[in-house]
Nucleic acid binder design. Sequence first.
DNA 1: CGGGAAAAGTTGCAGGCGCAACTAAAAGCG
DNA 2: CGCTTTTAGTTGCGCCTGCAACTTTTCCCG
Lengths: 167, 167
Amino acid sequence: MVFPMKPNLPETHLEAWRRYYVSFWRIFAAIEADLQAAGLPSLSWYDALYELYLAPGRHLRMSELARSALLSRSGLTRLVDKLEKEKLIERKSCPKDGRVQHAVLTEQGVEMLRKIWPVYRAGIAKYFAAHLNEKEAREFARTIGKVATAMEPVCQKAVEAEAAKQA
Amino acid sequence: MVFPMKPNLPETHLEAWRRYYVSFWRIFAAIEADLQAAGLPSLSWYDALYELYLAPGRHLRMSELARSALLSRSGLTRLVDKLEKEKLIERKSCPKDGRVQHAVLTEQGVEMLRKIWPVYRAGIAKYFAAHLNEKEAREFARTIGKVATAMEPVCQKAVEAEAAKQA
DNA sequence: CGGGAAAAGTTGCAGGCGCAACTAAAAGCG
DNA sequence: CGCTTTTAGTTGCGCCTGCAACTTTTCCCG
């Protein structure tokens, strides 16, 4: 029980949440520490570069990238500033729509992904995967996958709520 | 596959990681947004207050609290500054050891927990628990619990590594 | 067409956090 | 005892990030 108050949230689920919460922060901190120790940029850089790597043509609009990389638009602007300064990406304005900017992954950006990934992968393996056998991993992925996909529309809803506030 | 490179990390585990990662950030952001919308402080405040609530005598040394609340020592100092300013906790220096400070939960701190928890609980229920049945929740808690407990010594090790660096 | 509304990005600002350096107190040891 | 080392906590500084306000461009509709 997290706090003495009638729990309409079953104890099992609550315990699942607490372990989920602390495990995530611990793993996240450990991986970030490993990256820093290796003189590499943090996961937020990796996330952004990797989303571009996956995208067709290796480019995305700023706002698409912001959503994929789990950042606010302003946060992404600053991140892209830094990535561009390091020549890992390039900004290209869209000829069809003058408002739009595209972030394009450069060859050096791909190179950076290749440098980060081994360290990242080792962290995932050490801190997370090592404790799950094949069956557990499959079941875990299935369960948390439901949660992850269910949250996509919620993110959408947050945007809509903001829009509704204006009206 | 996250990046084309011989994966010594099985695909199943990798997929589990990716879903774990994105689901966590989405839920975390959603809960923080709910708290902010309700005019309540963020989860880091809750975590610290709640750890004090659980502690015998409702007090902890600064460094113990830092570890429990998943913060650095300096981060905790600032957080405690703010909590103290809001009279949610009090700093008490230890008579036995002049170096030690204790953070003590006040009655108003307990009151704040009571205000935050319903919103937090609703978020956990909506964004996380709603997507898991009883059996899934139990299995999930068991699996991620292994990871969480396995990470405790890693956190410990990080401290030791820092100590070793000096030697 | 023309003017207001909406959309995409950027920037000012402030808050949160960690690292490294610092201060104060206690412990170890010759 | 007195000096060095270690420990606990705080502070200076800089980075990262989000919110709100702003600019520019496009869309919508009379």
